[in-house]
Amino acid sequence: MNTAIVDPMIPVPYQVRSFQKELSDTFTIELTPASGRRPFHFKPGQFNMLYAYGTGEVPISMSGDPADPSKVVHTIRAVGTVTDTLMALREGDNIGLRGPFGSSWPVEAAEGHDLIIVTGGIGLAPLRPAIYHVLKHRKKYGKVCIFYGARTPEDILFRKDLESWRGRFDMYADVTVDRGTGDWAGPVGVVTNLITRGRFDPHHTVAFVCGPEIMMRFSVQTLNGLGVTNDRIHVSMERNMKCAVGLCGFCQFGPTFVCKDGPVFRFDRIQKIFPVREL
């Protein structure tokens, strides 16, 4: 049951329960309802609109465990006005929240298939809830592979999670960096290289892809080259948003509203609008 949405346009006050720095420009906040209202459920891939009072509002995906609705977790990269303000938040500070909104990673439809997760940079944050879900229901999936790309070893997000996924016997996780620095002894090169090295059955594979759009474009090409068709590839489109509920038209392209019909789309359904730079 979703108890967070009262009027989807009015932000509800939340308090920062914890703040954790992940990387030099990336942090994770855990939020709790300021008024003691009940926690809400969300699906992997959904997002909230976070309102930094006096500054503005931004869409941010949930990055926590969907099985634990008591924790509202967001991982944010500071890239501009609002996200820089959010980075200054500390325990006990208040922000506004609307949500959850949008479509989700089709974790249930992917059951019975091999699952390939291709991600890069901050793109791992919107996918982490899907990974938690899949690992909780591990037996329902065939092979599970995670391919993650980062700029340098210092930019690897959720390193502890990646290490623990890598250490499991029932899945495959690999990380590559664009530039090897320090004593990095792992792969160097783009994340698409990992896809071609992975051993999975492309004809029975579902792929979830999230990262910078250019990374997603090349990942889709690589998956296609291996035989994974566009109806089995899902991507998350991050376009600017205002209302997040399909009212203002800010994110609209033809009949498609990225906020309401997305952000997670089956690739064959948006491949025409995918290359459009600004909606």
Binding site: D25, V79, G80, G120, G121, G149, A150, R151, D155, D178, R179, G189, V190, T192, N193, T196, G211, P212, I214, M215, F218
Partner: peptide, 17 residues
């Protein structure tokens, strides 16, 4: 493939937008 990969590495796709 290597040329494409080198281009992607060069553009620093994970850099600040």
């Amino acid at each position: 493939d290597r040329l494409n990969a080198a281009r992607l590495q060069m553009i620093d796709m994970y850099g600040r937008p």
